[in-house]
Nucleic acid binder design. Structure first.
Lengths: 250, 250
DNA sequence: CGAAGTTTTGAGGACCTTCAAAAGTTGTGG
DNA sequence: CCACAACTTTTGAAGGTCCTCAAAACTTCG
């Protein structure tokens, strides 16, 4: 557990969305951080915890999930390298969901105190973090639509396309393929279907030549047809970044 | 369309969550507003719009929804009197969902420019609005769980309990009952089931003496059993308000 | 090389949908 | 204030998507 700044990946992401002031960028880079390494299937946060840190995924893959009394699990989001996870805990005291890894993962922890102080001192950073949580919310909405109104084929295609677009934005798409270290059982927990049915759904997608899978690499073989099937529009990912701010100095 | 401040209801809500400074409270009350009246089933925002205002529901009931190519609709949230809706549009340029009324509704519009300026000038207000969007996100997550992992009975019970808790927090629960001016068809769009099946599900809930319905008033007859059935925990509504902030003056 | 986990296959059944129509409610105009 | 249209709720019956349970084939890893 080293103490150094690992925030340049996050700064880069923010700057893809819009300019940062020199002072603002410095303030983010100056945030005290603690880097932690996790193995596969380790809990970073458990439901009911009162975390004191947000976490930034420097490498790997994590999910947020809720568990029902019955033991059934619903994954509500995935986060890849470059994503800030659990900004919600900066203001919300008790975690209403868990966060765990699906692969060996490097996490950069930032204390809520520092996040809030910096947000107050630099309104542009407050806005950037707020925007991040708004994107989160937009993805949650789309997931509700996904499990509420799409059948298993459309639903699975939609999630795979979401991954494809996120990996592409992170420059991690190679020949229309990306590495997805998630078991079918875990994927089915995100899609609200059973592993058995997901398996048959994937077979159908492969049979239709819409996707290919090899090891844990997923390749989109037929983008137009996948997009048509899923009714996918990348609008909800809001790649364009936040509203341009033309505010007078206050 | 009058031009006056109607923000006292919102200030009251914020103060239920934690103290506001005198200056902060004044700043909110001073926000220029425009009050608009809508009838039933009117669109306040359409998917693809670029709204210039957030809207605060002073009276009535609205939903946010997405529509699929097929025409299927998924409602992703409901908002009752006292709720600030569509803060997301303050930073997100293009609306990825629509907002419409389910009853005659009074909406107070506040320009994004003023929201952002006030958030920058008063960090406590920025935090309060951020917290509001985090609650939104928490509810979206719970809805994903609802449609993803609960059957129609649990799902319907859960949504009705969410309404019951929201109305109770707004002091609008009378004898365990609340007025819900939503057709079964619209409710089914929120639950991800068909109107026919929702109808049978409601009949079952009534038959088990879990709820009563009369006109458009819903009464929870058996709280413990409803809560047990739905696996309901109000934690995700975060009635406790945001984290206490002990920041030094910056 | 064996153990544990993951993917795949099969068969039967439950939950929810679809389509269609009747019954009940609400709103409007003559 | 009634009549009629439009909408909402309810009922029925058949069918499809997805689930459950169980076991085999395959992969990964120590």
């Amino acid at each position: 557990m080293s103490i150094r700044s690992d925030m340049s990946l996050y700064v880069a992401k923010l700057e893809r969305r819009g300019p940062l002031s020199v002072a603002g960028r410095k303030a983010i880079m100056a945030l005290p951080t603690r880097t932690r390494e996790y193995g596969i299937y380790q809990d970073i946060v458990r439901e009911g915890d009162r975390p004191e840190h947000c976490c930034f995924v420097a490498d790997g893959l994590v999910s947020r999930y809720k568990t029902l009394r019955s033991g059934a699990r619903q994954i509500v989001s995935f986060h890849i390298a470059g994503d800030m996870v659990d900004l919600s805990s900066a203001l919300v005291v008790v975690a209403d969901h868990g966060i765990r890894t699906h692969a060996p993962t490097t996490v950069v922890a930032i204390s809520h105190r520092d996040i809030l102080q910096t947000s107050a001192d630099y309104p542009e950073i407050g806005r950037a973090l707020w925007f991040d949580t708004l994107i989160d919310a937009a993805i949650f909405r789309e997931w509700t639509v996904n499990v509420g109104r799409r059948n298993s084929r459309e639903r699975t295609a939609h999630l795979l396309l979401e991954f494809a677009y996120k990996f592409r934005a992170a420059d991690q798409l190679v020949n229309d393929g990306f590495e997805l270290p998630i078991s079918q059982s875990d994927l089915s927990d995100a899609l609200g279907i059973t592993p058995v049915h997901l398996n048959r759904t994937l077979q159908w997608l492969r049979g239709e030549r819409l996707i290919r899978t090899h090891m844990r690499t997923v390749t989109i073989e037929n983008w137009p047809e996948m997009i048509r099937l899923a009714g996918f529009s990348s609008a909800y990912l809001h790649p364009e970044g936040p509203r341009e701010l033309k505010l007078p100095k206050s």
